[in-house]
Structure formats: structure tokens, C-alpha cells
């Protein structure tokens, strides 16, 4: 099933050489719409861009910014890159020609981002069998924990022990009841030492 329609989203945008959609935090290429010159390196670029944003996100976190959306611009002599977070779990990277004014690049970036956000929401609603209200939030909370927990390799085990919810249930967040979700939220706040989750 094709989830995103990138050509449609990018239609009418001048100087756009490439558009990458990258899953976070694993930095894998989810979809792309690029000039042939960039096609071959797409997977590698996705990993690099993902790492770059993750590092900046870590830096922001050290400065106390936990939930703000992140946008990065990179200007080189021949290219203007715009990296923009889309929800907690996706990253959009736009490669423009350097001649495009930066304000225009940001404008196009925001516009395309909004279009893709709608397409991704549709994808989630159809994939979780009517649990659209609970499961995306549960999944986002778990991703948030994985992203910020100091020892992410064991964070799910810690969460299971703190909540008393078996690991196999946590691995299927769509199945969590509202009561279980509340427990998960509280435990994630405890593990991260924060008062509330803005996800």
C-alpha cells in the first residue's frame, strides 16, 4: 500500500531537488522523491540526516527543551537543506537549490509538511482498527521514552516492571486500555523525571 503521495505534495514547488521522509528514531528511509543524482545515496542520507537531528535534539534537551518542534537549515554553496520534524516519529528533509531564498524554503517546507501530516494520520487511522484515539498516543509515548531514556536498551523492561504491564502488551500499544495507558504515562514521567508528557 502506498502511504504517501510525495509527487503530489511536492507539485509546484520550485528548486526542489529532493524530499526524504525518514522514520525516527531509527533513521530509516520511509519514502523519497528525489532527482536521480540523489537517488542512489538515499538510504545513507536518511541515516545521516536522522543522526544529525537526533544530535541537535539531544542538545536541545540538555538545554531544557523537551517538546518543541525542531527545524534545521543547512546552507552550502550549491544546496539549501531544510530538516523538519514531523510528529515524534518522522523527519522531513528537503534539498533545494541554493538560489531559493531561505524564507521561501521554510514556507514550502511547512506547506508540504502539513500535507504529509494529513496523509500519515490517515495511514494510522486505517491501520489500528478504530483505536485511533488511544493507540497513536500510546505508541508516541513509548517512542518518546525510547528516544529520551538514559538506557534505551532496557527502557521497556523498566516500564514493564514499573507498571506491572507485561512486555508483550507494551509491545502492542494499540491494545493498552485507558487505565494501562495512564499507568504508562506516569511511569514514563518517573523514568524521565518530568512532570508531564507533551506528546
Amino acid at each position: 500500500m502506498q502511504i504517501l503521495n510525495l509527487p503530489a505534495a511536492a507539485e509546484g514547488v520550485p528548486a526542489l531537488q529532493g524530499l526524504f521522509v525518514i522514520t525516527m528514531p531509527d533513521c530509516l528511509l520511509f519514502d523519497s522523491y528525489v532527482l536521480p543524482v540523489l537517488q542512489e545515496a538515499s538510504e545513507e542520507l536518511a541515516a545521516m540526516f536522522g543522526e544529525l537531528v537526533r544530535n541537535h535534539r539531544d542538545a536541545l534537551r540538555l538545554m531544557g527543551s523537551w517538546s518543541s518542534e525542531l527545524q534545521i537549515t543547512v546552507e552550502s554553496s550549491d544546496r539549501l537543506l531544510l530538516l523538519r520534524e514531523l510528529r515524534e516519529d518522522f523527519l522531513l528533509v528537503f534539498a533545494f537549490e541554493s538560489s531559493l531564498p531561505i524564507g521561501m524554503a521554510r514556507l514550502f517546507g511547512r506547506r508540504i509538511g502539513e500535507t504529509l501530516q494529513l496523509q500519515l494520520e490517515g495511514f494510522q487511522e486505517t491501520s489500528v482498527d478504530g483505536e485511533a484515539e488511544q493507540s497513536p498516543r500510546a505508541a508516541r509515548i513509548l517512542e518518546f521514552l525510547q528516544r529520551y531514556a538514559p538506557d534505551p536498551h532496557a527502557s521497556m523492561m523498566r516500564l514493564a516492571l514499573r507498571t506491572g504491564i507485561p512486555m508483550e502488551h507494551l509491545e502492542a500499544p494499540a491494545s493498552l486500555s485507558p487505565q494501562a495507558l495512564a499507568k504508562v504515562e506516569e511511569a514514563v514521567c518517573d523514568i524521565l523525571g518530568i512532570d508531564q508528557l507533551n506528546v
Binding site: 532496557a154 523492561m157 523498566r158 514493564a160 516492571l161 506491572g164 507485561p166 512486555m167
Partner: peptide, 19 residues
């Protein structure tokens, strides 16, 4: 204590002690 009060978490607790 976990074995008594939350037996479903016994294995995960053992896993964290091993960790």
C-alpha cells in the same frame, strides 16, 4: 515482594537484575 504482589513482573525483574 514482586513474586507475591505482581507475579507477572517476576521475569522482567530477574532480567533487570541480570542487566
Amino acid at each position: 515482594n514482586i513474586e507475591r504482589t505482581a507475579p507477572q513482573s517476576f521475569d522482567v525483574m530477574q532480567g533487570l537484575l541480570v542487566e
